[in-house]
Simulated scan of single mutants.
Amino acid sequence: MQKFEVQMLAKLRGLACALELFVIVPADGNTGVPSVVHDFIGEWTTFSRHGLSEPLSRKKILPSAVIDRIALSIVKALINVHSRGILYCDLKIDNIMLMPGFQDQTGPQIKLIDFEKAINMADRPKYEHFRAKRHTEALRRSYHIHPAVILGAMPYNECSEIYSLGISFI
């Protein structure tokens, strides 16, 4: 976990939709890398984790009521992240983790992970800088990012987040 991501998670402290940081342990030994301790996302009995991409990759059909709850949880999560002055900038199904109680509505439905690309809304706008030769590859590989952001015509903003939200729903 990079220093910037830790700073973003610190700003999101207390939100049910983001990882809760417990402690940062200073670098120890010859690794020179600090350790970050955060809450566990998954089943406590099996230690398994479930991302939103998992049931989709197995072509598992979720009941429509569960899909509705998950979709609403994702929208609420984005609203909460934005209310803290942060743009997520990397909303995709791989970064959405299903919480153990998502099927029976016991507790939070989802958590967002990987805030490495997140930015403060108060900072200067963030543009992607893909070379023109790489645009086609970037558009294919980063399908969840608004095409205007990839082409450098638009910075990340609330509109690009809504685009990523729509792609996630599709």
Rank of each mutant, 00 (worst) to 15 (best):
F115Q: 04
E158C: 14
L9Q: 12
N157R: 05
I96G: 03
H50A: 11
L56W: 05
H82G: 00
G85T: 12
C159H: 07
L139Y: 06
F115T: 03
I170N: 12
K117P: 01
N120E: 05
D28R: 13
L21K: 06
E43R: 10
P26E: 12
D28P: 03
I24T: 10
S142C: 15
V33N: 09
D39T: 07
I113E: 06
N157H: 06
N157S: 15
Q7M: 04
K76A: 08
L98K: 10
R131H: 09
F169M: 14
D68I: 09
S64D: 12
S164F: 09
S53C: 15
E116A: 08
R84G: 07
P147W: 08
S57I: 06
A148L: 05
F40E: 01
V149F: 07
V81K: 03
T136P: 02
H38D: 03
L151N: 01
P125C: 00
I167C: 06
P108K: 12
I119V: 13
D39R: 03
A132F: 02
E158G: 13
S142T: 11
V6C: 03
P100W: 07
P108M: 11
H146W: 10
Q7D: 04
H146N: 09
M99G: 01
G29M: 13
L52N: 09
L62E: 10
M97S: 07
T136F: 01
G101E: 05
N120A: 13
V6P: 01
L19K: 10
L165E: 00
A16S: 15
I24M: 11
G51L: 00
A132T: 12
L15F: 03
V75D: 06
E158A: 09
S64G: 02
H135Y: 12
G42D: 07
A65S: 14
P147T: 11
